[in-house]
């Protein structure tokens, strides 16, 4: 063992990703951004006119906003070494609640309170009752989806006017979806990289027991991650409800799994403690550009399933884990 290590004042780029704590946690994000750059270049070369058109880009922003919201929320749970399969159902539930026959100032808070309650239950089950996150959130997902269908059996209902205004059209010449994306991303990045909670979340995800021994309220941190995820899902539900101007009890069903895809493609590891919202931005954009690119290139939508699956499998295979299984 060397007694006094030599500390070079500056490290090379590669060494920095290996040695420097911040960069180590963001190495997946770096890879995602590299991929994203390649994709943009590819689209720019193959379909330059259509891809960079204002219509296409603003459509992209409007379409991707909900996925941004849930993926960012999912990122918190994954960082804390959890897993939230219930976000799709929460989106649907908030859409159902927001189109209930009630006054806006009543139902909007109810929608978010319900989401927070789901997050609390998820966290309580996973953290305090030690049920495996996949099983726990599978269970709540089923329950929440049931309630969504109970409240709103078929698509319909009237969305709150304020949401319709906030989720459609443009503001200052830019599509409103973009503002949702920027606001959510900024908030997530601030929470993870600018607050005490963020560091504690990384610590908890790495090793809950060790984090607890250092005096962190690790259980509370993990529960909070689930609550944040649920609240972000409710926001996505609000955006979708506003954009469609009506409710849909199944609107979130596809988004639940895509939220994991966005976070994982962005370099957040399922084992916790590595990754973050910056990478998730790239991950979601990769999904969006892939779908967009395949559409623009007139590829059969059936191929999108295949490509998405291949992307997913590639992403999880990039960082080899120690153990096989879940």
């Amino acid at each position: 063992m060397k007694g006094k290590p030599e500390v070079p004042p500056r490290r090379g780029l590669i060494a920095r990703f290996r040695v420097d704590a911040f960069w180590f946690r963001q190495r997946g994000a770096a890879l995602s951004f590299a991929t994203l750059t390649l994709m943009v270049a590819l689209l720019g070369v193959t379909v330059p006119g259509t891809f960079f058109s204002a219509v296409n880009l603003s459509n992209l922003a409007a379409q991707l906003a909900p996925l941004f919201l849930v993926s960012l929320g999912q990122t918190f749970v994954l960082l804390g070494a959890g897993f939230d399969l219930s976000v799709g159902a929460v989106i649907s539930l908030s859409s159902a609640i927001l189109t209930l026959d009630m006054a806006d100032p009543v139902k909007i808070p109810i929608a978010f309170a319900a989401a927070a309650a789901v997050g609390l239950v998820n966290g309580w089950g996973c953290v305090h009752l030690r049920v495996h996150p996949i099983i726990m959130t599978l269970a709540t997902s089923s329950i929440v989806q049931g309630f969504a269908l109970l409240l709103l059996p078929t698509p319909g209902g009237v969305a709150p006017q304020v949401l319709v205004q906030m989720a459609s059209g443009t503001f200052l010449g830019l599509p409103v979806g973009l503002y949702w994306i920027i606001a959510a991303t900024a908030a997530a990045i601030w929470l993870v990289h600018g607050t005490t909670f963020g560091v504690q979340l990384y610590a908890t995800g790495q090793n809950p027991q060790a984090a607890w021994m250092t005096g962190i309220k690790a259980p509370r941190i993990r529960v909070m991650a689930y609550v944040i995820s649920s609240l972000m899902a409710a926001l996505a539900g609000a955006y979708l409800t506003g954009r469609l101007a009506s409710g849909d009890p199944n609107v979130g069903s596809a988004l639940g799994l895509d939220s994991v895809l966005g976070a994982v493609l962005g370099g957040t590891l399922l084992s916790g403690g590595v990754g973050g919202p910056i990478g998730t931005v790239a991950g979601v954009l990769i999904i969006g550009l892939m779908n967009n690119g395949l559409n623009l290139a007139n590829v059969s939508p059936y191929y999108q399933f295949v490509v998405k699956g291949v992307l997913l499998v590639t992403a999880v295979s990039l960082f080899r884990r120690k153990e096989a299984g879940l």
């Binding site: 897993f83 799994l257 191929y303 399933f305 295949v306 699956g309 499998v313 884990r321 879940l326």
Partner: peptide
């Protein structure tokens, strides 16, 4: 060594397609 959850989701998407 992919996570089984994500891997089987991925293959599910591929199979569906």
């Amino acid at each position: 060594r992919g996570s089984a959850v994500v891997v089987t989701l991925g293959t599910a998407a591929i199979i569906t397609g």
